[in-house]
Design a protein around this nucleic acid. Structure first.
Length: 852
RNA sequence: GGGCGGUUAGCUCAGUUGGCUAGAGCGCGUCUUUGACGUAGACGAGGUCAUAGGUUCGAAUCCUAUACCGCCCACCA
């Protein structure tokens, strides 16, 4: 293969991925001595397309995976595909709608098999996209969230919870979406602040007491009045103490309801009297429980008023019923006022329908014992969080977590393995034969529960399910996922894993923030600002996307997508490509590898030192999940150090042995971050063999630190000279003269090469003239004609002023006795030394100014 | 109501336990067809680190308060 002039990612990426996949490099090795390194991929939706957030996820996880593979760890990156219960169901229901059908036209089993086919038609797309992103995952262990090994484990866990009494069937208020006909966990409800009305309504007393004839309650939901079963006042409220136990006439009905005393009523709020509707409000439900109040459901699962609401209101929507109730109250003179307020209203996160709290019988998990263990493990620092603050946030959440409703009225999901006795509704049995709708046992007939599990109940068990074939890989090394999943996923994995396996599911958690659009807005289909990662890949290359995504991004922080960073990364890939192209040319031109110059090349020790430093630093940064800094470091190493200084210097020496070896080290270190271009280069170079993906992480070079320092000095001199050549009137270059100066003498050729000076002559000190460089310990003069030099005088004055202020700063610091006393000695010594150097230089410059 | 995070160059953001002249990419200005790269090279301009106090020899970094901007949680009728 030959190096083309520019790197064209599309030409190589698919082949390179195929090469890796075919070679088996993604599979964990059988090396028992190696450390295990395991990452479980958060499974993307099986029938969906990847979005830019997946791009980030894969980038981060694959960097870690490839890095640990190069380090020799037994690395296992496990891919997955999610049946995405509710998400997929919503898509499928829309499809049914478009065909004029509804879910009620089919049985659950029919629906399940329809969606199964639907998903499998679409399936595969997502997996191809993961390949385009370069995910080096073990495809042979891909797990689908409905695979038998998943459902088996989920059923075992359900049974264990059941046997331990941690699962119960309860009729409680659940968050119900009347459009999607399913209940949700608390965490799945989106709360929004909305403008609403607060109405005051009079409830007359059956028998006036001490001159009081009515109580005024405030409510934002007058239609629920029809389901009121009490009115509460605070037990400490002196205004109403004497009324507790008396009865009120419930307006618009013929019912009478009691006045009760409960802490829930806030003395300060409104009139201090609150209506209690246990069947339609969470707080009221709890009050109802405390006082044994009847619960009257007036709103049905269809979102319409039911027969309990009375003939006047039955079959009206909640909105219409509200209007009618208000109108009727007004007619009866019971509406006493209204006021605009802002309050929080729960919505379905998918369709935005207002969530109704409705009474429903569901399966609940008693989470308290699970949360307790999780909190204990977190407090014991068993799991490290990035960013660290998320740990306490999770603990706070777990401390107030309520029982978890795991029943969903969605056909697409894992069926709940529970059957109910048709003659005794309280008799439920556990049975895994969910393919049957009916079971006979002990002479009884049991009917299957038609509900499915909340997806998080199964996803919450993901780490030990996916690693079940290689138990040594559990607990996994790190769970990398979006910060938005802290509660619903990370928290549940920790709870369930501790409960089922007795162990934590992962040692580290890394949470990334959201990828926002270029303007910093959240991406959404409705806004039309969605960025497709695959389009970016085809435009700039997979590596460019990866590097661009991780740039300037820190854990847990939402950050905008930046095309300019992707382009900068694309340019880096091209730069490296051309570096390799040049080195290959030099190798081809000189197969024996003889050096062209025999004198020392200080840039060699210098670049080896830079590579060593980078090697050490990258390991440190990746151990702390500082991806952006590691990326920056490599960019700087390759571009600003390797290409700009080392390669440029090496053009004189052409030491191909070192060129080859340094290029190899750089390719290995960059490989986790830019797998495609590095492997493509590796495959294209004439002297390399095997695959880059399975190379060993480089060992540091032996270096001579004196030479490194000398090259730093040379760099300073060269930059200084270039700067003068640019800023001198005429922008020409001039001879660079020096006196007895070994550094200059030994590097005349290099200096001339890098500054484009006409010559670099050595002359005696008293003959030196022209412009003196402000470099300590060197007498270097740019031999500039008299007339040009005079124009340049003011520049020298400026430099003297600047140097003077720097000296003042150092002086002030040293004359502070506290500084010399308390600061570390090395620091103080260094300051002294610097001061001395700068003072010497100042003297020389002043003398020089006098001469001009 | 509670909690978390942010405010650093024109833009987007780094800056780990306090320590030399606060960095990067993009953008901007000037110059350059130098043996790979114009997706390039060289040089340069640009910052009272939100504000006000405090701790310290020393603060972008630690503490307190304020302002503004995000996000999360919460049962306020």
């Amino acid at each position: 293969m030959k190096f083309s002039k520019a790197y064209e990612p599309n030409e190589y990426e698919p082949d390179v991925y195929a090469l890796w996949e075919k070679s088996g490099a993604f599979k964990p090795s059988s090396n028992k001595k190696a450390e295990n390194y395991t990452i479980v991929m958060p499974p993307p939706n099986a029938n969906g397309n990847l979005h830019i957030g997946h791009g980030l996820t894969i980038a981060l996880e694959d960097i870690l995976t490839r890095y640990h593979r190069l380090k020799g760890d037994n690395t296992w990156y496990i891919p997955g595909a999610d049946h995405a219960g509710f998400e997929t169901w919503v898509v499928y229901e829309r499809y049914l709608e478009s065909k004029g059908k509804t879910r009620f036209d089919y049985t659950r089993d029919q629906l399940y098999s329809q969606v199964w086919d639907f998903v499998h038609e679409q399936r595969g797309n997502m997996e191809l996209q993961l390949r385009a992103l370069g995910a080096s995952c073990d495809w042979s262990s891909l797990t689908f969230t409905l695979d038998p090994k998943v459902t088996d484990t989920v059923y075992k866990t359900f049974k264990k919870l059941w046997d331990d009494g941690l699962i119960y069937r309860g009729k409680k208020l659940v968050n119900f979406c009347t459009k999607h006909q399913t209940a949700f966990a608390d965490i799945e409800v989106t709360h929004k602040d909305e403008k609403g009305m607060l109405w005051q309504i009079a409830y007359p007393l059956v028998e006036p007491s001490q001159g009081v004839t009515e109580l005024i309650v405030s409510t934002t939901r007058p239609e629920t009045l029809l389901g009121d079963t009490a009115v509460a006042v605070n037990p400490e409220d002196k205004r109403y103490k004497h009324l507790v136990g008396k009865m009120l006439k419930l307006p618009l009905t013929d019912r009478e309801i009691p006045i009760i005393a409960d802490e829930h009523a806030d003395i300060e709020y409104g009139t201090g009297v609150v209506k209690i509707t246990p069947a339609h409000d969470q707080n009221d439900y709890e009050v109802g429980q405390r006082h044994n109040l009847p619960m009257i459901t007036v709103i049905g699962f269809d979102g319409k008023m039911n027969e309990n609401a009375g003939a006047n209101y039955e079959n009206l929507t909640v909105q219409d019923a509200r209007k009618k109730v208000l109108k009727n109250l007004e007619e009866q003179g019971l509406l006493r006022g209204e006021e605009k307020i802002t309050h929080s209203v729960g919505h379905c996160y998918k369709c935005d329908t207002v969530i109704e709290p409705l009474l429903k019988e569901q399966w609940f998990v008693d989470v308290k014992p699970l949360a307790k263990e999780a909190i204990k493990a977190l407090r014991a620092r068993k799991i490290k969080f990035h960013p660290a603050s998320k740990k306490q946030v999770l603990i706070n959440y777990l401390e107030q977590l309520k029982d978890w409703n795991i029943s969903r009225q969605i056909p697409w999901g894992i069926p709940i393995p529970a059957f109910q006795n048709i003659n005794d509704p309280s008799d439920w049995i556990f049975d895994e034969h969910v393919d049957k709708t009916e079971l006979k046992k002990n002479g009884n007939t049991y009917m299957r529960d038609e509900d499915t599990f909340d997806t998080w109940f199964s996803s919450g068990q993901w780490p030990y399910i996916t690693t079940s074939e290689r138990k040594a890989h559990f607990p996994t090394s790190v769970m990398e996922t979006g910060a938005d999943l802290l509660f619903q996923w990370v928290g549940r994995m920790i709870m369930l894993s501790l409960y089922v396996t007795g162990d934590i599911p992962f040692k580290d958690v890394y949470m990334h923030g959201m990828v926002l659009d270029e303007k910093g807005q959240k991406m959404s289909k409705s806004k039309g600002n969605v960025i497709n990662p695959i389009e970016i890949v085809s435009q700039y290359g997979s590596d460019a996307l990866r590097l661009g995504l991780i740039a300037s991004r820190s854990a847990g922080v939402n950050q905008a997508f930046s095309t300019s960073k992707v382009i900068a990364s694309r340019n880096l890939c091209n730069k490296l490509w051309n570096v390799a192209r040049l080195i290959q040319q030099l190798v081809d031109d000189n197969p024996k590898g003889d050096k062209e110059l025999t004198i020392d090349n200080y840039s060699e020790d210098w670049i080896c030192h830079q590579i060593n430093q980078a090697n050490k630093e990258i390991q440190k940064l990746l151990a702390n999940y500082r991806f952006a800094e590691a990326g920056d470091l490599l960019y700087d190493l390759i571009w600003n150090k390797y290409a700009d200084w080392f390669i440029e210097s090496e053009k004189l020496w052409k030491d191909t042995t070192l060129l080859k070896s340094t290029l190899e080290q750089i390719l290995i270190m960059l490989h986790p971050f830019a797998p495609f271009v590095t492997e493509t280069i590796w495959q294209t170079l004439s002297w390399t063999s095997g695959m880059l993906i399975t190379q060993n992480w480089p060992k540091p070079y032996q270096i001579d630190h004196k030479k490194v320092k000398r090259f730093e000095e040379l760099k300073e001199i060269i930059v200084n000279i270039r700067s003068h050549f640019q800023s001198l009137p005429g922008a020409a270059s001039y001879p660079i003269a020096f006196d007895d100066d070994p550094l200059m003498y030994d590097n005349q050729l290099l200096i001339q090469h890098l500054t484009k000076a006409p010559c670099v002559p050595k002359i005696s000190t008293d003959e030196l003239s022209g412009l003196r460089l402000a470099i300590p310990n060197h007498n270097i003069y740019l031999q500039i004609p008299e007339d040009v030099l005079n124009k340049y005088k003011h520049n020298l004055e400026d430099r003297i002023l600047k140097l003077g202020s720097e000296i003042n700063t150092l002086d002030a610091r040293l004359s502070n006795p506290n500084y010399t006393k308390k600061a570390p000695k090395e620091l103080v010594d260094e300051t002294r030394e610097q001061l001395k150097i700068k003072q010497d230089l100042l003297e020389k410059m002043k003398a020089e100014l006098r001469l001009i």
